[in-house]
Amino acid sequence: MAKKSRTKARESPPAGEVGPRQPCPCGSGKRYKACHGAAGGAPAPYVARPFEGMPSECDVIAMRELVPAATAPLAVKETDRPVRLCSLLPAAAPAMVREGGAIWLGLQVQHQYGDPARDLGAVLEKALATEEPGVIGLASAPGDGPRLQDLVSDSELDITVHDGFGYWVDDLEEDPTVTAALEQANAAANPTVRLASVEAAYWTSVGSKEHLRWVMPHPEDELLSALARLHAAGQDVIADGSRLVGMFRAHGLLAPVWDLPVGTGAEVLEEPAARFGRDLADAMASGGELSAAERSARAGLANRQVTIR
């Protein structure tokens, strides 16, 4: 699982709420009660599920929090300029206007003003207002205005996961200095593959371990109960030797995480992941009270959550 500043789920209130002593999800580094949880103490309200309504919401969250190097063309309303959504840009830039006017929009950025979708919308508007090449960013909270999902079409994103950050220079001539910097950045990027059989599920290798991390769109309470039913029935195994070890909570959604035996790879997960998706849908539709074993499983899953944002 990712190495980020995080809060154990046993300190977290239910249903995705943020406790007063937890780190503020806006990324300020302050406790929630001293930041967006303070009466009148923050410039903008914290948005629990900022990317709701965004095409491919779960993949956008994965690109922002879990996937090192990925891109997707972004269809923006009322412009014919090419816009490229990127997991990460050089120096964590919010956006870049390239030679020729193309816009690259970064998801993994330094600033946090409470609503990342509004931040992205403001950055995109600034980029669209200029054609001069350079870095586009925000120096302060953007205030009211359109969010990213208000500016783009409803079409699902066509996501490409890259082996490294070569896409940073795929529109430039080769430069030895840039090549050396890329090699350094690439060395820190864990190999990652997006599964084709389901949405927003990513295999990754971190050297001594392999994981499947799957961002799911379902409400937290319903998803936990369904996962508990599958666990109690022994139906939560994705591959031989795999184990559901916990889940991330990010931007209002949960991302279950499976540990996989080293050498599993991504390809063998396609059919089992599709089957698990069908089983999960059935478990969510079944409803009814949980059994004692299912309640125990649910409590165990709830205690193995890690809040990213």
Rank of each mutant, 00 (worst) to 15 (best):
A69N: 01
A70W: 02
A70F: 11
T71C: 11
T71F: 04
T71A: 12
A72F: 08
A72G: 15
P73R: 14
P73D: 05
L74N: 03
L74S: 02
A75T: 10
V76F: 01
V76A: 05
K77D: 10
K77G: 01
E78L: 09
E78A: 05
T79I: 10
D80V: 14
D80Y: 12
R81S: 10
R81P: 01
R81Q: 09
P82K: 13
P82T: 14
V83F: 04
V83K: 00
R84T: 15
R84N: 11
R84I: 12
L85G: 06
C86H: 05
S87M: 08
S87E: 11
S87Y: 07
L88Q: 13
L89N: 02
P90W: 14
P90Y: 07
P90S: 14
P90R: 14
P90G: 08
A91L: 14
A91R: 15
A91Q: 15
A92Y: 09
A92I: 08
A93D: 07
A93W: 00
A95V: 06
A95G: 07
A95E: 02
M96A: 14
M96D: 03
V97K: 09
V97R: 15
V97Q: 00
R98T: 12
E99C: 03
E99L: 07
E99R: 14
G100F: 05
G100Y: 12
G100V: 09
G101K: 04
G101F: 04
G101W: 03
A102R: 14
I103A: 10
I103Q: 06
I103F: 00
W104H: 12
W104P: 01
L105I: 07
G106E: 02
G106A: 03
L107C: 01
L107N: 00
L107S: 11
Q108S: 13
Q108C: 13
Q108N: 11
Q110R: 10
Q112G: 13
Q112C: 09
Y113P: 10
Y113C: 10
Y113G: 07
G114R: 02
G114S: 03
D115T: 03
D115P: 08
D115R: 06
D115E: 12
P116G: 01
P116C: 02
A117S: 14
R118Q: 10
R118D: 07
G121H: 09
G121S: 09
V123Q: 04
V123M: 10
V123C: 03
L124H: 01
L124V: 00
E125W: 05
K126P: 00
A127L: 02
A127S: 10
L128G: 07
L128A: 04
A129D: 13
A129Q: 11
A129T: 07
